[in-house]
């Protein structure tokens, strides 16, 4: 039940109400727990709430890190 879905915030209204979208699905969410959220941010959504912002730079970096590591260590 601690299912979390990465979504992109599209609009922000009053009282921490916002809308987020993933793969063509748009849902109302609450940004009460991550109040600094801005439109365009990626957030992790659980039970209709943004739980944390997703850092796209960090996300890319860790993939690149593993690419480098596999190249260095070799595949065997």
């Amino acid at each position: 039940m601690c299912l979390g879905i990465p979504m992109r915030v599209t609009e922000i209204e009053k009282n921490f109400k916002a809308y987020a979208e993933t793969m063509g699905v748009k849902r109302p969410i609450s940004i009460k727990l991550v109040p600094e959220t801005k439109p365009g941010d990626f957030v992790l959504v659980h039970a209709g709430f943004a739980m944390e912002k997703i850092d796209p730079v960090e996300a890319r970096k860790r993939i690149e890190l593993f690419e480098k590591m596999l190249n260095l260590e070799g595949l065997d």
Binding site: M1, C2, G4, S30, K32, L33, H46, A47, M51
Partner: peptide, 13 residues
């Protein structure tokens, strides 16, 4: 109110 620390703040809200 069933869940862990992830769900608790949503119930608290």
């Amino acid at each position: 109110g069933i869940g862990f620390e992830t769900t608790a703040p949503t119930i608290a809200t």
